[in-house]
Design a protein around this nucleic acid. Sequence first.
DNA 1: TTATGAAAGTTGCAATTGCAACTTGTAAAT
DNA 2: ATTTACAAGTTGCAATTGCAACTTTCATAA
Lengths: 215, 215
Amino acid sequence: MSPFEGLNMLQKSKLFNLLEVHKYKYKKNQEILPTLRHENIFGIILEGSADIISVDYEGNETIMEKLSKESLFNTYMNLINFEDYEIISKEDNTEVLIINYNILLRQDNSKHVYYNIFMNNLFNIINDNFRKMNEKVRILEKKTIRDRLLEFFEIEYKKTYRKIIELPFNLKDLADYIAVNRSAMFRELRNLKEERFITVKGKKITLLYKSNNFI
Amino acid sequence: MSPFEGLNMLQKSKLFNLLEVHKYKYKKNQEILPTLRHENIFGIILEGSADIISVDYEGNETIMEKLSKESLFNTYMNLINFEDYEIISKEDNTEVLIINYNILLRQDNSKHVYYNIFMNNLFNIINDNFRKMNEKVRILEKKTIRDRLLEFFEIEYKKTYRKIIELPFNLKDLADYIAVNRSAMFRELRNLKEERFITVKGKKITLLYKSNNFI
DNA sequence: TTATGAAAGTTGCAATTGCAACTTGTAAAT
DNA sequence: ATTTACAAGTTGCAATTGCAACTTTCATAA
């Protein structure tokens, strides 16, 4: 889902003009926007890629999100927590577009068709991110590893209604995603296998049980 | 933050007309919208209140969110998970407004000023909800109760930069919020008190330590 | 004033998890 | 064919947590 979907080159350039965007280029492993903290802005990756790195109260760093071409970041205007994140470019020639919210939300922007198309796209992308975040909360609210796994399976199952779930990442990353210890997760996966709840073959997990709400 | 902020009565009624909204009224403890699942819609509480109840893979029910007047629900178009939720009215005369996304996002809506005001409001509200969800994920990703509490304190601290945190709910609800066992949380709070990290007086928690990133 | 209910706070114990330190499997590079 | 690197998988043990069953405190209504 691209924020510029439905816009041709001319409209795109008019949009950038209207929104008084700024573009910045980075080499690999540079921090994006260290000087722009506390500003009321969000960004779009135009080229290259970057990682959002979360720094917790102890200073521990973890990769929160991997940004690729056309990913948005800082869309939730989290002025409060912006200090807790670092965004680091992962390639040379990483280019980002910065948009100011105050300019974005000016009333009279909406007389331009290209602006309205762009806003619809933003709306959809943010909604989609919100849905993903919501899925994650549902999983993390579970107290046991087993419950987190089963909730994850349930959510994935309902995306296709197929009993075979193809993981978008490896098992180690799954452990990170559901925020549990890797070896403890393997232990629990083994239990689920032995109890004939699932089978695991590489990145394919097959559910052998009835989902709660569906057959 | 009201979705109708900046709109007068006339504009509001024009908006409802433009968006072809539907209104529904409920008595206490009725399920809102059981028949409209799988539809591409979201809702706004106009009067009264309701609870969003999450049903997990085992059938366990927990209150996910409390909706009051002018709260939005289903904004993330979670067609996939809609079956996992029930929305139950909590008062007689609870009235909800239902808006269809396809109608909401029609291109030519934006020639109306009241529509643009409404969309800006939606944008802000959704962003705000996103920020809250993000805060919650940051907390739930922590493995220990102590780390969850300290992350929570850090987040709350940065909203005001005051060492005294006034909880918006009681300690029991805090345990629910950070998704840990209540008595285990009390045990950890006691440890933090004994180690002179915090003091607790009712709903006021005072931080006695230096925050990581700030003094 | 007393009763009532709910939140606050405590404790012992069993279950679950994190952690560390392994081995095994596998795919790609030399 | 052998090395290298990393994911997959295992295990024992200590630490943390959930759970249940309490007591205490406090506010509110009878």
